[in-house]
Nucleic acid binder design. Structure first.
Length: 240
DNA sequence: AGTCCGATTCGCT
DNA sequence: GCGAATCGGACTA
């Protein structure tokens, strides 16, 4: 990728009109419903120097409160660290995991529940995303395929420069917040097939909750973090 | 493509 | 102390 040169995808994007910013009422939905609603929506990031980065949400996971053993809020647990999950729908919840990565969630309507944004299809600002991703790694300067820039919950935080310090507890629907927001894409094909499958990385929650179909992704999208071939095959056979 | 492993900080017990 | 909603590199095949 060369400086100042737009990719084909970016040029396509530039020809489109501006999309509508999502409002509080758009996100005021229970976690599972919000997970599905957010698929296809555009996450927009404006850096301090006004650089714009955009990615389409292609994979989400729901974390419920109460009974959900995979959730930080299991059994009503409420601490300073998980407080954003109890805040109004549209509140960003950014936490550190494995000592070195962030995960970005958006809280949903029910107290103690949220949606983890697991993957984006990079749409705009690819060069800058790549710079953030490559810069974070030590050693190699190897280029990263566009579809691999944001194909994981922490990769997308690096590529979009989403940090806990800047975004935890921030309302993504607040018009005053011009650093990050969500946009609708009226041209997104709502008929796209959505795969419902198990969540990633919560085996220690036990099989019952680890296996619940609370992860959702767009079928055949290259930027999905982990495909479930069995679930995809089952969809196929139901489709006849 | 699948599996294994080390990195590294923080919040909870 | 312990373990984590992960990632990338190394290795196998």
């Amino acid at each position: 990728m060369f400086c100042g040169v737009f990719s084909k995808m970016e040029n396509m994007y530039l020809n489109k009109m501006n999309y509508k910013r999502l409002l509080k009422e758009d996100l005021d939905k229970p976690s599972k419903e919000l997970s599905l609603y957010l698929l296809g929506k555009i996450l927009v990031r404006k850096l301090k120097d006004e650089t714009i980065l955009k990615g389409r949400i292609v994979e989400t996971e729901s974390y419920l409160g109460g009974e959900d053993k995979g959730s930080n809020t299991f059994n009503g647990r409420r601490t300073a660290a998980n407080e954003p999950m109890y805040m109004p729908a549209g509140t960003c919840f950014v936490y550190m995991t494995y000592g070195m990565y962030y995960c970005f969630n958006i809280s949903s309507k029910e107290p103690g529940a949220a949606v983890l944004i697991r993957a984006l299809e990079p749409i705009y600002g690819l060069e800058i995303m790549e710079k953030f991703r490559v810069g974070k790694r030590k050693g190699t300067n190897k280029l990263i395929k566009t579809s691999k820039l944001c194909d994981g919950p922490s990769k997308l935080c690096i590529a979009m420069n989403i940090t806990k310090a800047d975004f935890n507890k921030v309302d993504i629907t607040d018009p005053e917040n011009t650093a990050m927001w969500l946009e609708d894409d009226p041209e997104f094909d709502q008929e796209k097939i959505i795969v419902h499958t198990s969540r990633i990385g919560i085996a220690s929650a036990g099989v019952e909750w680890a296996n619940k179909p609370l992860r959702f992704y767009i079928l055949n999208n290259d930027s999905v973090s982990k495909r479930d071939k069995k679930a995809e095959k089952d969809l196929e056979s139901n489709d006849d």
